Every structure is written in C-alpha cells, then in structure tokens.
Computed example of a mutant assay.
Amino acid sequence: MATIKSYRSKGKTKYMFKVYLGTDPSTGKRIDTTRRGFSSAREAKQALTQLKAEYDAGRFKTKNQDITLGELFERWWQIYKSSVKQRTANDRFVMYQNHFGKYDNLKLSKLTNLWAQGVVNELSKDYKSYRNYLSPLKMALKYAVRIELISKNPFDQVIYPKAISKSKFRTRKENNFYSKAELKKFLECAKLDDNQMIYPLFRIAAYTGARSGELVALNWKDVNFNDKTISISKTVVYDTQQKTRLITPPKTPTSIRTIFLDDETLRILKVWKTTQARLLLKRGFNALEEKQLIFPNNKNRIPSPALPNSMLFDFYKRHPDLRKISAHGFRHTHATLLLEAGLNIKDVQERLGHSDIKTTLGIYSHVTEAKKKETSIKFADFLEN
C-alpha cells in the first residue's frame, strides 16, 4: 500500500510517497522505500508506478544490493584468487588498484554505458595495450551480472578506440641485452666486486636465462653438482593481501625446467656455497641446510624479485663505465647469444620456459632477422662458389 502526501520545503509545496514493495530474499526483511521532492502529486504517482514496475521486473536494488565498485571488486577477487596462480591474482589486483581504484566509491547503479566509455577513452590515450588493463574491471562486472547485482555489463556497449602506437608509460628498454664482449666485461667487473653475491648471481642469470623471480627462489637443493644441472621449478611472488613474499610454482608448466650447467659455472657456485656458509655463520645462520636459499636477502629470508635490479643499481654506481641493462636484460642476453651461437628457436624456447614460441620469436626478432640475412648470404655464396 502506498500513500502520497504533500509537505512544505523552503516555502514550497512538495510531494512524497512511501511504499511497501515486498521482502528482501537475502535478509528476510521488509522492503519499504521513500521518495520525495516531487513538484506535483501526478509526478509522484508516475514515479511510484515506475518504481513498482522496476521491482516487478527485478531491476530494483536495495541498499544492501547497490554496493560500491570497490566492494564488488573485493568480493570478486576473493573468489578469483583461489582459481588462478598467486602471481596472476596479484597482477590483476595491482592492475585494478592502479587504474580503477579511483572509482571505488561509485555505486553500481551509477555505472552507466557513458561512464564505461569515458573509462575506455581515458585509458586508451596512454596505453597501447589498454584493453588488457581493463580485464580485472570487466571480469568483476561480469561477476556482478552473474549474481544479479546489475542487469548488464556497461562495457558490453562501448566503442574501443584504435590503440596508440606506443604507450606513454613503462616503455620497453631499447637494446636491453649485452653482446658477448659486453657480458665478459661485466662478469670480469662482477668477479672483483666487493659484493660477493653479484658474480654468482649474474653468472647464473646470464648462463641460464632464468627470470629474476626464479633466481631468488633457488635453493641449494635445486643444484645437482653430480649431474651438472640446476632445476627451475618455482618463483617468488608478493602476496598483496598478506603483504608477504611467497615461493610458489611458476605460472605455466613450461616454466618448470632442468638446465645443464658448464663446469666453470658449477665451480663458481661451489665457491659461492662455501663463501655464503662462512658469511652466514658469522651472523648466526646455519647455511648447510638443503633449503638454504642461494641468493637470500640480508636477513637470510626470501628476497623480493626486485633484488637483482637493486643490486645492479648499486653495482653500476661502482662501475660507471659499464653500459646499463636491467636484470631481465640478462635473460635477453642469454637468448640472444644462444641464437647467435646457432641454436634453433625451439631449443631456445624450451630453455627459457616460454609456453608459446611466438613470445620467443617476438622478443628476439632482432636476432632472427639477422639470421635470415646471414642465411641469404650463405645461400648465395654456396651457389656462386
């Protein structure tokens, strides 16, 4: 039953109504709602009729149902993170916070197609792969449709602008790899550096192509000195909720691999194992356990995946004559030199742990293009001579 009443506001006559719509199935409580501020009884009656129609069609939302975007994302993420690898969940979380956290207080009822188009337009101005950045937001809203918090996803009707040719932020470092001569010079300097972990760390990085997260997850049990191998089967990730570092399996099965090591790299590791044990013993740590990390932080705990980069930063300050590359650049260096040495692209893919050979081809196109030219020259020389 609904009643329409008049009332005075700022010297003017206004109209309002209060209506009982039914029972909230999630709480079992009555749904009573009030609307006010109408200029005439007729306008109030029209609004009442529309409200009842929305309720009958299932489009009416109670205060408990019309949650904010931030609340929705939290609900969705709690479910999503248990269905994917920790690193994937963390990446989605950070991506949402960086680009869409500013919309956290918006009610779901305010997320219109016009709003969604504005979000897309703004993001597309700065990022080449802007559609990838939209994924956590769109996934959360898809979940909202599934549990009937909203009737449709506002991103279903947007028009996606043409991607820009180059992102304004976080552009890829050019020539982020060393030549054979540059790598030798770097390792010669690292061998004499005061930080005794620099040399073994970047020797392993350059001679295995392991990722930074994989390097700092290694323990001595992963090295088989008899078989001359090192097993890469885990990585370090940062749990954004627990705010702690974890050692977890890698994102894809192809990232799990066993790599053969040359005698000199094994010798360097043996020297580092002895040196590390001596240094840690002075500080009260037992480094003889198999689970002892090969490259721990200064508290002998799980380090950040950023540790190699932070060590490089300080190292380059001490050696300003060296050309600077990132820690990931040693992975590119490894692949580049493998290809230049004549290994086929499939072997390089397996050694790097790429799940898709297109990734290998795309990143190292500068080498494969050079190989194509070399092949053409060799073929011509063969025919002419």
Score class of each variant (00 low, 15 high):
Tyr238Arg: 11
Gln241Tyr: 13
Lys243Phe: 02
Thr244Ala: 03
Leu246Ala: 05
Ile247Tyr: 01
Thr248Pro: 00
Thr248Trp: 00
Pro250Asn: 15
Thr254Phe: 09
Ser255Ile: 08
Arg257Val: 09
Thr258Leu: 01
Ile259Asp: 09
Phe260Ser: 15
Asp262Lys: 10
Asp262Ala: 10
Asp262Thr: 01
Asp262Glu: 14
Asp263Cys: 01
Asp263Ala: 02
Asp263Gly: 00
Glu264Lys: 12
Glu264Thr: 15
Thr265Ala: 08
Leu266Arg: 07
Leu266Ser: 13
Arg267Ile: 00
Leu269Asn: 07
Lys270Cys: 02
Lys270Leu: 11
Trp272Lys: 03
Trp272Ile: 06
Lys273Cys: 12
Thr274Ala: 14
Thr275Trp: 04
Thr275His: 06
Ala277Met: 09
Arg278Ile: 12
Leu279Val: 14
Lys282Ile: 11
Lys282Pro: 00
Lys282Arg: 10
Arg283Thr: 06
Arg283Ala: 11
Phe285Cys: 04
Phe285Glu: 01
Glu289His: 13
Glu290Leu: 09
Lys291Gly: 15
Lys291Gln: 14
Gln292Phe: 07
Gln292Ile: 03
Leu293Lys: 05
Ile294Val: 09
Ile294Gly: 04
Pro296Arg: 03
Asn297His: 14
Asn297Gly: 10
Asn297Met: 05
Asn297Ile: 06
Lys299Val: 02
Lys299Asn: 09
Lys299Ile: 01
Lys299Tyr: 13
Lys299Met: 05
Asn300Ile: 04
Asn300Lys: 03
